[in-house]
Structure formats: C-alpha cells, structure tokens
Simulated scan of single mutants.
Amino acid sequence: MDRTQAPADHPKIPVEKVGILLANLGTPDGTDYWSMRRYLSEFLSDQRVIDYPKWKWQPILQGIILSIRPQKSGAAYRSIWNEEADESPLLTITKQQHAALSDSLHARYGDQVLVDYCMRYGNPSTASKVRAMVEAGCSKILFCPLYPQYAGATTATANDQFFRALMQETWQPAARTLPPYFDNPAFIDALAQSVTRALPDGQPDLLICSYHGLPERYLTAGDPYHCHCQKTTRLLREKLGWDKDRVLTTFQSKFGPEEWLKPATVDEVARQAKAGNRRIAICAPAFSADCIETLEEINEEIRDSFIEAGGESFTYIPCLNDDAAHIAALTDRIVANLAGWLD
C-alpha cells in the first residue's frame, strides 16, 4: 500500500524496512537442572539433529537422557558461564556480533535496515524476532544462519525454524536465506589472520581444524558438510602457505553409538602427541562464536587428552567472534545477498 495515499482513518503502517536476522545455535537460560533440561529437550528433539523415529527416540530422551544429561551439561556450562552478565558466552558474543554488524550495515543503508539476532534453540526465539520485525515494518527479511559450512543439522534446521515463523504471519514478508560462506575469500582471510595472530612465534608441529561432527550416514545421504569442512581447511592452509602435513581436519562432539565423521579430535590429539607432535594449535572454523564446544570441550577436554598423552604446548585459537575481519566478511556476504532489495 502507498502510505502517502492511505485514508486518514487507515490503521497506522510502519515505514518499510529490510530486516537482517542473524541466527545462532542457541543457549540455555541458566545452568540449573530445569533450564538445561528445557534447552536440551528442544535441541535433542529436533529431527534434523537426531533423526530417529519419535516413537523410538522420545521415550529414551525424556526418560533416560534428560534425567542425567542436564546435570552434566550444567556443570560444563558453569565452567565457562559469563557470571557478570548471567548468560552463556555464546549469547554474549552473539550480542557483540549483532552490535558490530548493526553499526556496519547502518553505516551503509541507514534506517532502511533493521538488524537483530535470534537463536534456533532457547531465547531469543526465531519466531519472536520474526514477529518483532514484521511489526516494525520489515517487508523483506534476509535470514542469516551464522554457520560457514552447510549442514542439515545446523543451517537447514535454522532455516526450517525461520520458515515456520513465517507461516504464522498474516502478511508474510519476502524472504531470503544467507548461503554458506565456507569458501568466501574474506572469511578465509579472517581465519588466516586469527591463526597468525595467535601464533606469533611461528608454526607449531600441527594446526588442527576441529569441526563439529555428524553421523557418517548423513554424508552418504547427501549432506555436503564434510566436503565444505575439507575445503575450508584446504583454503586456510593455502592462505597460510603451510605444508599439507602440518594442517589436519578432525571432528568433535560425538553423540550416541553411531559411527561419526573421523578422525575424532579428542583421539587424534592424543595420537599426535604420542607420535611426537608435542606442540599443536587448534582452531574451530565451523563455529562463528565461542561456545560450550570450544571453550569447554576443546580448551578443557581435548586439551587434557593431548597433555595426558605427552603433549607439551596446546594453543586454542579463539573463534572469529566479533573480530573486525570477521564482521567485514559477514558484511560482505550480507550486502551481496541484499542485491535487488537494497543497492
């Protein structure tokens, strides 16, 4: 509707904007049992994550796993919790990314854009942020899952939740989703800069690129995640100018009895230490922000595995978080995908 031609008694319609909605995995609201149980129940009930039939999986999840796992996960979260803000590091960093990207995009587009963030699991929910954007006048929304590599269990389920939110809207905005950016030159440059910055004394014996794992059958079913991870590692190694045998791809966070992508990071670091590679560095190129899988799993559990096997020097290279080069790379991808909507 042309707002200049609306009759005087027409309900007020906000000025049109383009929404840019950043999406990350999610976070529990607290580290107590019930907060962890709510979060884990939502996460592990997602059939993009655990695709077993509901009749088989839900009794196991609700009756056994969620009786035990919330205490263990709560303890892990407490070891990294942002006590000052009373929130998980993932939420703190996502807020920082949002602030930086909002500044970057408003500098380019002014009030034509509204930038916000949501979580696939937990709060703030995707549906609540889509609703807020529609109410604010967003007639178009670019949905941006912050996963460089595509996987059904990350990018696809985030998109699913976005589309479910759109189904609730009477007047749906036009919608686009941000494609994976695992091989984007600006993203690879940002990764390489983070490695160089973290290793001022030169190359360790090995650089391990640790990615969140998936069951092997997801790969054979057509999920491109494994290939995206391998290419990210190769491009990073080439950008650094390092030899092939100095950079490895591994996978972490195995869950359940199935065969997962290999090699497993926790086992590989121990094997490398025993083989004489006593100085390693690890980065996590699948994570846009530091979280439980990096701050606790890599920097505690995987570090311990390496040291116990005889390793001497373990360097964890933080995720890109709100690093200026990362924000520039994300801005570049967002601007490219706003073409035709905003120029």
Rank of each mutant, 00 (worst) to 15 (best):
S73F: 00
V113E: 01
N184D: 15
A174L: 15
Q149D: 01
L166K: 08
E238C: 05
Q193V: 04
G26I: 08
K56H: 08
Y147S: 11
L66C: 13
D32Y: 14
P318M: 03
E297T: 02
T4N: 12
F162I: 13
A324C: 05
T250G: 09
A156V: 00
A192R: 04
I68H: 15
L114Y: 10
I282W: 00
A328N: 15
L330M: 13
N337S: 09
I292F: 07
V15D: 11
L219K: 14
I292P: 02
I298Y: 02
D323V: 07
I208V: 14
R48Y: 08
P185S: 11
Y33P: 08
T315G: 01
R120E: 03
R176T: 08
P14R: 03
F143E: 08
A127V: 13
T155F: 06
L330Y: 02
M36E: 08
R303C: 10
I13A: 09
W81M: 08
P318F: 10
P7I: 07
Y39T: 06
A8N: 11
F255K: 07
L178R: 01
S88V: 06
T155R: 11
D245F: 01
V113K: 06
S88L: 09
T31S: 14
A192Y: 01
G213R: 07
H98C: 11
S139A: 15
E216N: 05
E42Y: 03
P257D: 04
P204C: 07
A100L: 04
E16W: 13
S35E: 12
Q112D: 10
S288H: 06
K95S: 00
A99C: 01
K274L: 03
I188P: 02
V15E: 12
A85Y: 04
